[in-house]
Amino acid sequence: MSVSQTTADEPAVGTPLRARPARRPGRWIASAVVLVVVATFGHTLVVNPNFEWPVVGHYFGSSLVLTGLLRTLEVTGISMLLGIVLGTVIAVMRLSSTPIVATAGWAYVWIFRSVPLLVQLLVWYNLAALYPRLSIGIPFGPAFAHVDANHAITPFVAAVLGLGLHEAAYMAEIVRAGILGVDRGQTEAAEALGMHRMLILRRIVLPQALRLIIPPTGNETISTLKGSSLVSVLSMADLLYSVQIVYSRTFQTIPLLLVACLWYLAVTSVLGIGQYYLERHVGRGSGRPGGAGGRRGPLLSLLRMRPSRRAVSYVAGP
């Protein structure tokens, strides 16, 4: 009995041990440094007149800026949709057992991930110089319909093609990783039940891959939102281009850029919140109730930083 005081038939009766937490002076110093830096910056925000906050306030809700914002959201949304759908197709192609199909998928990712987004946007915008007429028809055979590329490729179309096709390359890799991340046993069990490949992919593998796909897709959406500011070079009136229009006239450059910053920040924050709930939703059935459980938002992390005064307690054995 001297070996163990707590056996199965004899419940542990421990006295909570009261101990003062260890001193951590480093934490206090680091926090102080951060607070001083933040306070300095905050102070300049208020006292530096060049921020021109009244101008920011004036244009923040102006119809020109809001129209630009709407355009940005449209381009982002449609591009992401294109990227996700095409990316899923390419991911499945890359996993195909047919070598030509798999290689084509690989080549797509290789090309569209290698060429900078800005360059891709410019190429799509200038497509008319390469193919003046776009036709739909049988390859190497007769065509059924023609359009003039100059009319078909508006700045909006160029933006969506550029952003969407670029995004598809990244989404393809994300979806592929998601599919590969699903346990092989799931596919085998479905095969043994007589399900065929497309059915297994659609009903068994993809739903489970979603849990792995959604977090990076959230990041991709945010990066597409920010990438969409590049379309201002196509003189498409997105959020950035709209504020540029204003400050090229009024020379209030900084306050108008601030307007754009604040809107990008706002939309990104909303996307982040949406992502959090989406992750929680698809996290069901993952073995962890709440799915994204264990992850703290920035606010909660901040609260946790408060040094705990509670004594550490555990069951003490003699």
């Binding site: 346990d183 046993g185 069990a189 059935g285 993952s286």
Partner: peptide, 12 residues
């Protein structure tokens, strides 16, 4: 019918 060592129930 097949029953696997690792059960392989559809987790979702």
């Amino acid at each position: 019918g097949m029953v696997f060592q690792q059960f392989n129930l559809f987790a979702h």
